[in-house]
Design a protein around this nucleic acid. Structure first.
Lengths: 247, 247
DNA sequence: CATGGCGTTCCACAATACGGCATGAAGGGG
DNA sequence: CCCCTTCATGCCGTATTGTGGAACGCCATG
């Protein structure tokens, strides 16, 4: 279904570049103007796009999309349960806090964020994705997946993003064992350079990992001496979210 | 573009009923199974859907959609700015707090929510829509729109949802004048029966209304004597969000 | 007044999505 | 144990539907 795939790509492009004009999108995709235009009108009629208030030839995402939420966040549950513990954690450590959920395609997606007030801080937008095998949140999830699923995932080697990335399946498995023992996962420059994160999983009633909370901070502020305390706080926060979510 | 429109409808249906099977969707739409199936596969390939973890014949929304956010919430700005003041407001009044933004088609969409802990409380999910002319948040927005736009909107009569709904355009205009004078809007059973709300607008630098914060409570707990104080608190909260958002 | 860039509309063609049907797998009842 | 239903999924000829080049109208600029 070519037209559907293309429409969704265009929708995503509008989201990234909003408010955006027809012409900008045609340059972006190299498609005929009429094709892009027709797609935009269709998306608008369906209620997913709307014209910008100030410049009606620019398009932006309508609020309608908010009714379409990932299963992991359905109802209020997880999202609402996580918010206040995350804020409290931020107040304790004054670093950026993320909530991420696993998605298909071996990636984690940032679902919520609470900022710290340092002038220099890590930056991920809601919706950003990162690889399961090279992030603290990913490891926190993997560590609590059934053995079978991990084996399915961890075969051969993974993509590397720097010299610290774990690219070997066997190495990943031993790291996951450490994560289980400590209760939290740590990432030193495995994915993005200059960024560290400490993460712990949020589980459902059956022990299935639903999401992970992470403290994320620039390398420059990371002190090994703080690790144990940060780990403990993140783990407690994750446990509190789990408890609230089940209630 | 029939296939695009249909795919979006199916996507919305999946969001409402997830995790859902092909068969359930065919019943819902009265379409041939193969058509629905093909659509689901396409949406999945585009990364918008994924198979449920436990039952792989059930479909649910993938986390990809989170990267597609309404213009009103772009970046972190409004959404992040609103969160903490909303929580503080909830702590003060112990009632449910909503943040809503106007959408095309004369409706307000709930963008965020902070719950109170009363056993009986109002319930709106993120993404829920309600009519501009019959809600406190809608009035808060309309009251700060340029005269020209209000005139365009307020022509003839509006749909009524009960005996308290303002259905006359002229009557709405005088109500909006009162809202401007008081600084906040009040809704007594105008839309949903048994629910009251008090709302104030969040403005951008040019005075354009971007969103509205509301305290929402069941009729049974509403005391006229509290109104002035609730109104003041909501107005202060909206002003604080505005200030944080501009910063 | 000419020009270029823009968003928008039109239309004949052919690529593409449609949907009836067939298949295969899974569960339930006799 | 086998039949029978129910379900998800794959196939394929047909005609519906989306395609994209071209033309239009609008606006700002030289």
């Amino acid at each position: 279904m070519k037209s559907v795939t293309r429409s969704l790509r265009i929708l995503e492009a509008v989201a990234r570049h909003q408010p955006v004009t027809v012409g900008e999108l045609t340059k972006l995709f190299g498609l005929p103007k009429s094709t892009v235009q027709r797609t935009l009108v269709t998306l608008n009629e369906a209620g997913w796009l709307r014209a910008n208030r100030r410049d009606t030839t620019r398009w932006e995402i309508g609020a309608r999309v908010l009714a379409v939420r990932p299963a992991a966040l359905q109802g209020s549950s997880l999202f609402a349960a996580a918010r206040e513990p995350m804020i409290r954690l931020r107040d304790r450590v004054n670093e950026t806090i993320h909530l991420s959920v696993p998605d298909a395609l071996h990636s984690m997606v940032v679902v919520d964020r609470v900022d710290c007030d340092h002038p220099v801080r890590t930056f991920h937008t809601i919706g950003d994705t990162s690889p399961l095998h090279a992030t603290a949140t990913g490891h926190a999830i993997l560590a609590h997946l059934p053995r079978r699923e991990v084996d399915e995932f961890a075969t051969g080697t993974f993509e590397g993003y720097g010299e610290d990335t774990i690219t070997d399946a066997e190495e990943l498995r031993t790291e996951l064992q450490r994560v289980r023992e400590r209760g939290y996962a740590v990432n030193h420059n495995q994915y993005l350079q200059g960024i560290c994160a400490i993460a712990a999983p949020v589980l459902d009633g059956d022990g299935v990992p639903l999401a992970a909370v992470a403290v994320s901070l620039p390398d420059s502020r990371f002190e090994p001496g703080r690790l144990a305390e940060l780990g403990r706080l993140v783990t407690e926060t994750a446990a509190e979210i789990t408890a609230r979510h089940l209630r």
